[in-house]
Design a protein around this nucleic acid. Structure first.
Length: 569
RNA sequence: CGGGGCGUAGCGCAGCCCGGUAGCGCGCCUGCUUUGGGAGCAGGAUGUCGGAGGUUCAAAUCCUCUCGCCCCGACCA
């Protein structure tokens, strides 16, 4: 493609609206432009990168035996009402009413539509297993769209759905997709890590997230450097903690802690580390029912784990009103000693502590040297907190480390949640009607491209991995001489005829402008053509990522780069 | 939805406190000169100052209301 005839509106300055690297660079390089919050147009360069990722996904999905379909964006409310998600999905669902006053939504995901298709068409176990996928625009009215393509309200997603007749088959399908995902993200040239994950709104049994490691990631994961174990901090299993060397239980002591309502305040005032304190969180667990959860001062409560433990679907911190109905303490001074009529549950870490500090259940008061079973009773203990750096790995027991990640893919084992609700059944060999066992599998296409930029850039611009670069080669002519033009044109045609993807900067700009744009756009190889090089019958080829420059004889340039690209992609 | 910030030329910003001519840099257009790391000179175009209402002789500036966008927290590819 000739730049003089292309629509690649680069920007010299960083746009004020973008703070995150990928967002900034994608705007500056003219890949995308914003239309409204979380809604973007893909310009020629951006679209090329997206298509590259899509093609890799398509190849690997096909290779894994999945079949491509295209489901509608618009789907009727009835399907969503069948599974309850018309209400459950809430405000995130973009809703539309047609001229006949019928309700529709813009698909945020397609379990309902695909399950409906399945139940209408599939009758026999002989038709299973079946996996279908699509690459299509999704709509979610996100609470807070941000970071350009990272979290849009309209975004391109690959979603796949598997249907199996039994657990074994389902696991096999799941593993097939898991393996395909590993190949996809390896091929895109991203540093990624599959991690155990929570199942969230979509629901289901087990799931893995594919995380691209990047400091700007919104997700926090823990991993065990000495094994393959990695998990979202929300999901990571934490077993019962071993008690440290048992301390003698000191005398319970009431101390005055005026106005110290936060964990930090109390610890500063009493000059003790956060780890000596136990916070008492009151959660509303029913209409008129609250539960106290004890968490160590430096730990974060994990509401998903608490919900799972209690078998409930909604959990909120109790309102001050409710708190005052059950305790005599103002918020910040609630403690387990003397709490009555409330279920008290302790995180495993708390269950292993001795002589800790708790709220005094009256204003401006805390207790020192509180001890379980002596000073108060609990109704149970469990895993109620988020994992953090230093927590023991469930595999080896070694301390885990944390890293930030961007979730680019997610695989779920759904089980029969949707097939049962929607009557997606088949007849097995014995003639029994059984619900299909489902899996669902997503990849954020735009997010994958953004992640690639996040992971591959320097102060001058993007450094594209070859497999997803919009172009492989960027020819920069740096002189207006007739000879330069002629050589450049010839090289451009030669490369194109060899199937190489070439962007040629034939604009009437000065060298500096072109070099800077080439570095900004970040194609893997830059070929500089100018009188200086031609005088010695050579072209200068620069590897964008390493910055290394190589003189290549004019006659071999095309072949040289062809080989280079083959060996690196 | 809560908290913080911002809307002035295509982009980045100043002007606003203290009301009175709408400005700077980059980009854009024309011409000449230049052409290996964001050129020089000369000339030029571009704004309902986010929108509505109010105060005032006079509003980018003060007041009220609105809309949009960005950032921090709960959701997710």
């Amino acid at each position: 493609m000739r730049m003089s005839q292309s629509f690649i509106p680069t920007m010299r300055q960083d746009p004020g609206e973008a703070e995150v690297v990928s967002h900034r660079l994608m705007l500056r390089t003219g890949m995308i432009r914003k239309v409204a919050a979380g809604i973007y147009s893909y310009l020629p360069l951006g679209l090329r990168a997206i298509r590259k990722v899509e093609n890799i996904i398509r190849e690997e999905m096909n290779r894994a035996g999945a079949q491509e379909v295209l489901l509608p964006v618009l789907s009727p409310a009835e399907l969503w009402q069948e599974t309850g998600r018309w209400d459950f999905y809430g405000k995130e669902l973009f809703r539309i009413r047609d001229r006949h006053e019928r309700d529709f939504c813009l698909g945020p995901t397609h379990e309902e539509v695909i399950t409906d298709l399945f139940r209408r068409e599939v009758r026999s176990y002989r038709q299973l297993p079946l996996t279908m996928y699509q690459i299509q625009t999704k709509f979610r009215d996100e609470i807070r769209p941000r970071f350009g393509l990272m979290r849009g309200r309209e975004f391109i997603m690959k979603d796949a759905y598997s249907f199996d007749q039994d657990e074994t088959g389902a696991k096999h399908s799941y593993q097939g997709m898991y393996d395909a995902y590993c190949r996809i993200f390896t091929r895109t040239g991203l540093k990624f890590r599959p991690v155990e994950a929570d199942t969230g709104l979509i629901g289901g049994i087990s799931s893995h997230e594919f995380m691209v490691l990047a400091n700007t990631g919104e997700e926090l994961i823990v991993y065990d450097p000495s094994s393959q174990y990695a998990a979202n901090v929300e999901r990571a299993h934490l077993g019962p903690a071993e008690s440290a060397t048992p301390e003698t239980h000191d005398m319970l002591e009431k101390v005055s802690t005026p106005n110290a309502t936060s964990v930090e305040d109390v610890c500063t005032l009493l000059k003790v580390p956060l780890t000596r304190l136990v916070k008492t969180l009151l959660y509303q667990t029913g209409k008129k029912d609250i539960t106290a959860i004890l968490i160590r001062g430096d730990h974060q409560a994990n509401e998903i784990k608490i919900q799972r433990f209690l078998g409930i679907h909604e959990l909120n911190l109790a309102t001050p009103d409710l708190v005052s109905q059950f305790t005599s303490a103002p918020l910040g001074f609630v403690g387990p000693i003397g709490l009555s009529n409330i279920r008290v549950l302790a995180d495993y870490a708390v269950a292993a502590m001795d002589n800790f500090i708790v709220g005094g259940n009256e204003p401006d008061t805390h207790y020192l040297n509180a001890n379980l079973n002596r000073d108060f009773r609990i109704d149970g203990s469990g895993d109620f907190r988020q994992a953090q750096a230093g927590d023991p790995s469930p595999i080896t027991g070694n301390p885990m480390e944390t890293a930030r990640g961007i979730e680019v893919g997610h695989v779920f084992m759904l089980g029969t949640k949707y097939s049962e609700q929607m009557g997606a059944t088949f007849l097995d060999a014995q003639g029994h009607s059984l619900p299909a066992i489902m899996g669902c599998y997503g990849i954020g296409v735009g997010r994958t491209v953004a992640s690639a930029v996040e992971q591959n850039h320097d102060e001058k611009g993007i450094c594209w991995p070859i497999p997803i670069a919009p172009f492989q080669i960027h020819i920069v002519t740096v002189s207006t001489s007739e000879q330069t033009q002629k050589v450049a044109d010839q090289l451009y045609l030669d490369c194109c005829s060899q199937g190489l993807e070439v962007l040629m900067d034939d604009r009437n700009e000065r060298g500096g402008v072109k070099f800077n744009d080439a570095d900004l756009l970040g194609m893997p190889y830059q070929i500089v053509i100018g009188d200086k090089g031609l005088a010695r019958n050579a072209l200068e080829i620069k590897d964008r990522k390493s910055g290394q420059k190589t003189d290549v004889p004019l006659s071999q340039a095309c072949q040289w780069i062809h080989d280079k690209i083959n060996e690196n992609s």
